[in-house]
Computed example of a mutant assay.
Amino acid sequence: MWGRPPAWESEYIAFFDARQRDFMRIAYTITGDWPSAEDATQQAFSSLYVYWPRIKPATLDAYARRTLVNSCLSVLRKRKRETVTEYVPERAYADERDDWIDLRRALLTLAPRARAVLTLRYLEDLSVMQVAEILDVAEGTVKSQSKRALDRLREQLSADTNDPVWGTR
């Protein structure tokens, strides 16, 4: 009834199997929560499936990452429109550990595009040129956004150490 799957589908499935965990990690870092990361990852893989026969193998990795980042930003825009309440912390107590850093909380203070730049640059260990290609911006933009985002993270993390609730780690 349904017929045979297209010849390229096995390549897509292999790519999906190989990259699904990495994509979830990237999406989580950009979106800040697992449900949004799952939505963005699913949206990205759905889009990749539709365009798979037209994607050139040489540009597949960059195209896939760019699709994922765009999906993450789209999910965040949608979530921003739907958000009614402010951020509620996952816990209301200070941790006993002095060396613990709430990097996730600090990352969420950054703009989604800045999180995308840091995620691709440092978590995925991509070059400035690769990040610029994925985000379709100039290399100088990647450098300046990376610097500003890292400065903001440092500022947030040092502010957290002075925070009476969060800073007693």
Rank of each mutant, 00 (worst) to 15 (best):
W2M: 07
G3Y: 08
W8M: 01
W8D: 07
E9S: 15
S10I: 13
Y12K: 01
I13R: 05
A14Y: 00
F15S: 06
F16T: 00
F16Y: 08
A18D: 12
F23I: 01
M24H: 04
R25T: 03
I26P: 01
T31S: 00
G32H: 01
P35I: 00
T41W: 01
Q42D: 00
Q42F: 00
Q43A: 14
F45D: 01
F45W: 13
S47M: 05
Y49V: 00
W52T: 05
P53I: 03
R54N: 06
I55G: 02
K56I: 12
P57N: 12
L60D: 03
A62V: 15
Y63W: 02
A64E: 02
R66H: 04
R66Y: 08
S71M: 03
C72F: 02
L73S: 02
L73I: 05
R77I: 00
K80T: 04
V84M: 05
E86D: 15
Y87M: 14
Y87V: 08
V88A: 14
R91A: 10
Y93G: 09
Y93C: 15
Y93K: 10
D102C: 06
R104H: 11
R105M: 14
L107C: 07
L107T: 06
L108W: 02
T109M: 05
A116L: 02
V117H: 07
V117Y: 04
L120K: 02
Y122L: 07
V128N: 06
M129T: 11
V131K: 11
I134V: 06
L135E: 03
D136Q: 11
V137T: 08
E139V: 05
T141V: 07
K143Y: 11
Q145A: 08
S146Y: 04
K147D: 08
D151E: 14
L153K: 08
E155R: 09
A159W: 13
N162W: 04
V165D: 14
